[in-house]
């Protein structure tokens, strides 16, 4: 059942990319436990505007855990305390009356803070652009049932494809590595028969683009815990294997 709780928020406020940031404390009183975390911030923002203070900038869009726009570091945990849950789907029933909540943006050198809790995640798009696709021009596709894909293969590929690109894996990683994101994207396509033609080129290109922006994986497993879509780190191992194979195969293919 719903009830009302009072919280103390410690929110990172930073006026712009170059500006210094700091924590500002806000009291969030009378918050219904049925509210989502972002609705709680909406309420705080309404009150700030009423008081003539600029609202806290945070990003969200679909608010149903699929677009990957939202993402906050809540009490030192990416997307907060509930497992397999994006920030927008986290509800205040996960908190108790009197809780102190620290809210920070994702942090990584390649995720610079734009303002308050909003960060720039375009480095992830660069990884996709470097090879996260199957090259098939519109109209060039054969009949969809021409190539059967074993159900198990399709399901495993789907587990990887479920990535919503939120960046929680990077935020949660003490190395700011983007291995889970990249591995999910690489394996989604590498596992499918359609993706075989570019498998080795894709793996090499995407991994090396990733390395330009993000740190090196030390297998803590924090990313897997933070992932709102439960993507397992097994994909990282498979990508590591594919990468070394790619280094051999691509050399052979290049002659």
């Amino acid at each position: 059942m719903s009830s009302e709780i009072n919280l103390t928020l410690q929110v990172w406020r930073q006026p712009g990319p170059q500006a210094e940031g700091r924590f500002v404390t806000y009291e969030a009183s009378g918050i219904s436990t049925d509210a989502s975390f972002l609705e709680m911030l909406d309420i705080v923002n309404e009150r700030l505007i009423e008081n003539g203070e600029e609202p806290i900038v945070f990003e969200s869009d679909c608010r149903e855990g699929i677009c990957g726009t939202c993402g906050l570091m809540i009490n030192g945990q990416a997307h907060g305390p509930q497992k397999s849950t994006a920030t927008c789907q986290l509800h205040m029933r996960s908190f108790k009356d009197g809780d102190h909540i620290v809210i920070e943006p994702w942090r990584a050198t390649s995720f610079p803070v734009l303002r308050d809790l909003a960060v720039d995640r375009r480095a992830m798009d660069a990884i996709i652009a470097s090879g996260g696709y199957i090259s098939v021009n519109t109209g060039a596709a054969p009949d969809a049932n021409l190539t059967p894909v074993p159900k198990e293969t399709a399901d495993t590929a789907f587990d990887a494809a479920a990535c919503i690109g939120c960046g929680a894996c990077v935020a949660a990683c003490p190395n700011s590595a983007a291995q889970l994101f990249t591995a999910a994207k690489v394996q989604h396509l590498n596992l499918l028969p359609q993706g075989q033609a570019q498998r080795w080129a894709r793996t090499e290109a995407m991994v090396e683009t990733m390395e330009e922006f993000f740190g090196s994986c030390t297998n803590h497993g924090e990313c897997e815990e933070a992932c709102p879509k439960d993507i397992p780190i097994d994909f990282i191992a498979w990508t590591n294997r594919d990468y070394i194979k790619a280094k051999v195969k691509n050399r052979k293919l290049a002659g």
Partner: peptide
């Protein structure tokens, strides 16, 4: 690799709450 990760990483002034990382992995 540590140098690379340190360049990529930014500290959380509010601290991190480790879930999966254990004493061993964090003290390598």
């Amino acid at each position: 690799l540590s140098r690379m990760s340190m360049a990529a990483d930014q500290r959380y002034p509010g601290g991190r709450n480790y879930i999966a990382a254990n004493f061993a992995s964090r003290t390598m």
